[in-house]
Design a protein around this nucleic acid. Structure first.
Lengths: 234, 234
DNA sequence: TAGTGGTCTAGACCACCTG
DNA sequence: AGGTGGTCTAGACCACTAG
């Protein structure tokens, strides 16, 4: 039983994965408990726990106290997207980053900002190699970030300033496709009617809204990531 | 020093977060090592490790052996998207799921499939409450999944069949916005020229391609998720 | 209420990396 | 070369929950 070849949690994870793929443990099957697996693999229970927890995080296993650990019937794929600051995103692609403030005004906040007070409205353009890359349409809650009122945002984008100045505890992000409106098509230097990728994001510090922003990317933008069990391949 | 109130790794995580937000530990600062923190918090080093590792996973800390743990200069936001099977995605929204196979043919595989052999090409429609929800345009590598050749896919979608039959170790997914072509506009029962959300996904089993699929969602589709440090708020 | 996963401890060794 | 995080161990207690 005690097999000295499974010592690291990665090795155990790989073996469990193998058994799932080989249908030794088919979808829906309840696998042995941690104590038994630890005995079989000849390691501590904590090591088995680490391996199984990792697989549960990636959605392949479902674990419940007392009920045990089951192989997921419908493994929900999990994709982790990195949402870097725009400057970094562009510079990572070896392009020159540029920024231009288009509009800065105080106005009545939209509903999404969760405040009825006056808020700061910014519209800005981010460039990659002098080509419009994304339009940033942002509202900042001046109640939670009063310092923003003093900030011109003509050289440093709110995108960059906020991550350093106003940390958030919580956020909400969504992605969709839209037809470019006349104004945004003009800013992005593209045709009205082009399909644009849109990211809407709102962040809070505990229960107070900090900012809500709509990023409208130039046509052709593609967000990209890897999915998988963490096994390196290809 | 030894403070008995920080016993769980979540409590330690919260305290570390507080110090970061309060600028006790500003961006770029190297925080005390695990041994010192464990002594300060009056807990085991493993507990501190768990808390810091969790924060490193969410991108707020950068850890390196010997160099220590630093507060990230540009906290890269991480968003975890759940990519459920389409049937589930639709039924979760309390809508009735429907499926119709549009085309099934053997043809020369596209480059993305990474094989020059004949592959199975499927086009199918998924409905929510009898309204077209998404077009599935899929290629299946018959070398890695020979059983797919026998499968009619007229009642069960490849989307569903594959997750049960052909597990993957690795994948690649990307999101973009496109203008609906004539064929897809017809299938989605929408106007040509509408902006549609597109997901491209390719999966491998180790180094062998299993399938590549393009999901074209009906206009208005929005993918949505939460971001944050795991602290529950709002 | 009993079985299972979740977590903590105290100690140890190792792998990696910076200085 | 030495400090730091990464991991493993053996044991313990706790929290949740299915039966």
């Amino acid at each position: 039983m005690s097999d000295p070849q499974f010592k690291s949690w990665q090795a155990i994870q790989a073996e469990v994965l193998r058994r799932i793929h080989a249908r030794d443990w088919p979808p829906g099957h309840t696998i042995p408990n941690e104590v038994d697996l630890a005995r079989e693999f000849g390691c501590a229970r904590a090591t088995v726990n680490r391996a199984l927890q990792s697989l549960a995080d990636s959605g392949l296993l479902e674990r419940r106290r007392k009920a045990g650990t089951r192989v997921a019937l419908h493994p929900v794929g999990k994709a982790t997207l990195d949402i870097p600051v725009l400057r970094q995103e562009i510079e990572t692609r070896s392009m020159t980053y540029g920024y231009r403030l288009v509009e800065r005004a105080l106005a009545c906040a939209p509903a999404a900002l969760g405040t009825d007070k006056t808020a700061l409205h910014l519209i800005a353009l981010h460039y990659a190699d002098d080509v419009p890359y994304v339009v940033e349409d942002r509202w900042i809650n001046l109640t939670s970030v009063p310092a923003a009122a003093e900030q011109p945002f003509d050289r440093i984008s709110a995108n960059e300033w906020l991550v350093i100045t106003a940390p958030y505890t919580n956020g909400d992000i969504s992605f969709t496709a839209e037809v470019a409106g006349a104004e945004q098509a003009r800013l992005l230097n593209t045709d009205t009617g082009a399909a644009v990728f849109v990211i809407d994001r709102t962040t809070w510090d505990h229960d107070q809204t900090i900012t809500t922003v709509r990023l409208t990317y130039a046509p052709g933008y593609r967000i990209h990531t890897a999915i998988g069990t963490g096994m390196t391949a290809k």
